[in-house]
C-alpha cells in the first residue's frame, strides 16, 4: 500500500488491491496470479491486506446458522398442508 522501495511502486499495490477478491477466489489466470504472488512476497502491507481480506471471507463462510423457530416451522407446514389439500381436492 505504500512506496516501500523502488521495486514495489505504489501503483502495483493499487492494481493488486483491485484484484484481491478475484485472487482469493482463484478467478485469475496463472500469469496474473504469479505476478500478484511475486509482489505480495516482497510487500508487507499487501500481505496484511490479503490476510485480513481472506479472514473476512472465512468469517462470512463460517457464520453460525440459527435453528428455525419451532412455532414458525409448524406454521409454515400448516400453510403448505392447506395448499396441498386445496390442490388435491
Amino acid at each position: 500500500m505504500k512506496q516501500t522501495d523502488p521495486h514495489h511502486p505504489h501503483e502495483n499495490c493499487l492494481a493488486l488491491f483491485e484484484r484481491l477478491s478475484e485472487y482469493i477466489d482463484r478467478e485469475l489466470d496463472a500469469p496474473t496470479c504469479k505476478e500478484i504472488e511475486t509482489h505480495i512476497e516482497a510487500c508487507k502491507p499487501c500481505q496484511v491486506c490479503l490476510k485480513t481480506l481472506k479472514q473476512t471471507v472465512a468469517l462470512c463462510k463460517h457464520l453460525e446458522r440459527r435453528q428455525v423457530p419451532e412455532a414458525f416451522s409448524l406454521k409454515l407446514k400448516g400453510a403448505i398442508f392447506d395448499l396441498v389439500n386445496e390442490k388435491t381436492d
Binding site: 500481505q47 490476510k51 468469517l59 463460517h62 457464520l63
Partner: peptide, 25 residues
C-alpha cells in the same frame, strides 16, 4: 497503512467466531 497483521486476522477461525467478532460481522 499497517505492516502488522492484526490479532483478529491471525487467530484461528474458531477462536475468532466464538468471540464478539461474529456479532460485528
Amino acid at each position: 497503512v499497517s505492516a502488522d497483521l492484526p490479532r483478529w486476522a491471525s487467530q484461528p477461525l474458531d477462536q475468532v467466531l466464538d468471540g464478539e467478532l461474529a456479532g460485528v460481522i
